[in-house]
Structure formats: C-alpha cells, structure tokens
Design a protein around this nucleic acid. Structure first.
Lengths: 215, 215
DNA sequence: ACGATGTTGCACAGTCGTGTGCAAGTCGGG
DNA sequence: CCCGACTTGCACACGACTGTGCAACATCGT
C-alpha cells in the first residue's frame, strides 16, 4: 500500500532537479526550449514531458513555487515590525535571498500572455509593500516626488539592478543585500547615514536570529 | 542624374515608418515577428524584406539609430557642466526623452547573441556616466555603499522602473523625467531637498533654452 | 502613355520547437 | 530473479517563422 511504489525516488529527484534547472535556464533565457532545459537537467526531452504535460505546465509549477517563496520571505521579513523604514529594510533583506525567483516571475509575466496573472498572485506582497510606503510617506520618514505606487516600481528596479551588478561581478554577493536596502531607503528619502545605520542593525539582527535558530 | 529617381519618396517614407513601428512593436514584444511588424506598419511582410534583407538587418538599423539618439542626447545634456550632480541631472533629463529607445537597446542586447555588442557601442555614454559618479563620490557629493560602476546599474534600473510606471499610468508623463532625476540623485546620497532644488533648476533651464531655440 | 520603382499576394523550401506514440531499455525492491 | 515504474531514443504530425522567387499591379515623373 505504499503510495510511492518503487523507483519513484529517482523520479521525484528528477522532477525536482528539472524544476531547479529550469529556473536557472529560464533566468538566463526566458525563451529556453524544452530541449535546452532537459539537457541542462541531464535528461532527455521526452522525460520532461513525463513529468509535465506541456511547457506551460512546467512553467506553471515553477511559478507556483516561486510565488510561495517570495510571499513567505516577504511575510517573514515584515512580521511584527511597525516602523515603516525598518519593515521595508527587513522585508527587502528577506526577499533578497529569493530575488532570483522574484526576477524570474516578472520576466515570465512580461512574456507569456497566459502568465500575466502573476502580478495578481503577488498581490499580497505588493499591497503590503504599498502600505509600508504609504505609512512612511505620511509620517515623513520617506520623502519622494513619486506617488506611493511608483515606489514599488523603483524598489523592483533597484533590486534587479543590483542583482545584475552582482551577476557581472561589479558588487560582491555578501554586501549586495545590504547595499540594495540602503540604496532603496536612501532613494525613498531617508538620509544616507540613517539608512546605513538602520539597515546594518536590521541585517545584524537577521544573522543573529538565524545563527540562534540554526545552532 | 537624380539619385532618388522616382517613387522612392513613398519608399523612403515606408522605410522610416517601418523602423518607427518596429521600435514600438519590439518594445512591446522583443520577439515580434516580421509579420507583426509589417502589419503594424500597414505593409505586407514581403515589403519589409524589400527594405531590409533579414530580421537581423532590420534590428541592426534600429540599433544604429537608437545608439546615435542616446549618445547625442547624453552628450548634449552633459555639455559644459562641471558639477557632477548637475551634470547627472542634466544628462538624465536629456536621455529621458529617448528613454524608450535606450530601453529597447538593452532589451535587444539581452536577447540576440548577435547583438551583444550593444553595450560596447554605448561605451562612451557609460564611461561618461562613470566619470560623473566617480567625481561625485570623491568630492562627497554622492554617498553610496555601492561601487561607482554599480551606480550605473541603479540609474538604469530607476530609469526603466519609472518608465514602466508611466506606461501603467501610475506616474504622469510630464513629471516623470524630473521625478526620475530627483529619485536617482537621492539614491546616490544627495539630500532630498537639495536634489529637488537642483533638478528643478536644471529642468527649468532646459525648457527655457528649448523655448528660446524653438521660438 | 511609358518606364522605372516600389508594392502586393502567393507559393515554396527550410528550420525550429512542441507534443505524442511506441518499443527497448534500466533500476530498485519484494 | 522478476515486476513495476521510470527513462531513453526514435518516429511522426503539426504549427510558426524566416527568407526567396515571381507575376501582377499601382504610382509617379517625363
């Protein structure tokens, strides 16, 4: 009565590996063919179709995973923080770890007409972000010529810009998250010194918490 | 001995229109087919091949034009300004007018392996930008945790982010250029009030100069 | 009206990607 | 050792796009 009868151990591993590799491959080229993905996963095209009935289905599975990852990272980062600037910093640092998946999501949303619902699925994240920005602008923490909603675009833009810089070796990966957070908060009108201090504090708390949890 | 013998008036107009429409179409979908472009230009696919031997040739022509536009806008904006922050502001405002073409260039560069030389062709612009950033960081005008070269990525990111916001109707087109400039300068560490004042002054000078030139 | 130039519509070959079918493998556990 | 689940390698049909050839226009200047 085993639900996973026999050699499906390899099968599951394959499925997972295909998903992982597909993320990397689609990140490199959003139009990557099934063959490219299959070969990159060390598997034949036909095998991929054994796990996913169509290209769209494969992408759908990836999207599902990615949305969940982004959503949970954002929620975890925001959790229990009232101060707008601090909430933004913490959430941004948390999302930074899954930024590649976030980037892929928007890259796919721009392409597939089918997948244009992606932005809706990230609705919670965006709304939550908007609310942080709105509060920050209202209490004067943030200063910007841009309307609240546009700050979300800018955050995205800076996030992806630094990611690309990291890919090109212009920015060291370890510093990237903090630099991104500082840069965005500064762009939002927070004085540079204050942004630096805040982000440093939040980031250090993050590593401390993680060390406690892990060890 | 007329170099443009006869009905090439329409022909030239067609060629130009195809180029213009292709920019818009490729901006909407970087993988737009020759048929899509042709129809959008009110012409049959075969006609496009009458002007450009291949898809790559068409794109090449577009790239040529776009690089020239971006380069000249940037140069004109920078011209004769010594102060780093002011130079950045002025150049950014000038480039804003051709930002769609700039965006298309990078969009194409990411795609076509053939066209990966685009970033090289924009070398002058990038180097010039780097030099402005470097000077600003050195004299303390700019403050950022990011290395000089990464500021270029951030500028690009903010530029495109606001463009997208304008497309989505989140930001009014008239204010977009100024807001972009202010936001970037603020991100580069310039105090918000100072950035606003500087950009307003530079932008007003721009319109004044243009009015004088036009009228 | 004529001729050069450009446009159109159609047919065609070639390439690439998708999705499916099927027979011959391979691998692990009972 | 053998059974069942998975994988492989090939076959195919199908559609979309590119690039070319050619004959039938349309249009403008002379």
């Amino acid at each position: 009565m085993n639900p996973r009868p026999a050699s499906s151990v390899r099968a599951d591993a394959n499925r997972r590996r295909i998903l992982d590799v597909a993320v990397a491959e689609l990140l490199r080229d959003p139009d990557a063919s099934m063959d490219q993905i299959a070969r990159a996963a060390g598997v034949v095209r036909r095998t991929v179709y054994g796990h996913f009935p169509s290209r769209d289905a494969l992408i759908e599975a990836i999207v599902e995973r990615a949305v969940a990852a982004v959503e949970s990272a954002h929620a975890a980062g925001r959790e229990g923080i009232d101060d707008p600037a601090e909430a933004v910093a913490s959430s941004l640092l948390a999302v930074w770890d899954v930024a590649d998946r976030y980037r892929l999501l928007l890259s796919l949303a721009q392409r597939s007409v089918t997948m244009s619902g992606i932005r809706e699925r990230l609705g919670h994240v965006h709304e939550s972000g908007m609310e942080m920005f709105r509060r920050g602008l209202e209490d004067g923490t943030f200063v910007s010529p841009l309307p609240t909603r546009a700050l979300g675009y800018v955050l995205e833009g800076i996030l992806f810009a630094v990611m690309e810089a990291v890919n090109d070796g212009v920015v060291p990966a370890e510093k990237a998250g903090r630099s991104t957070a500082i840069t965005f908060l500064t762009a939002a009108g927070l004085p540079a010194s204050q942004a630096t201090e805040l982000v440093t504090r939040v980031a250090d708390r993050r590593v401390a918490t993680r060390a406690t949890t892990d060890g």
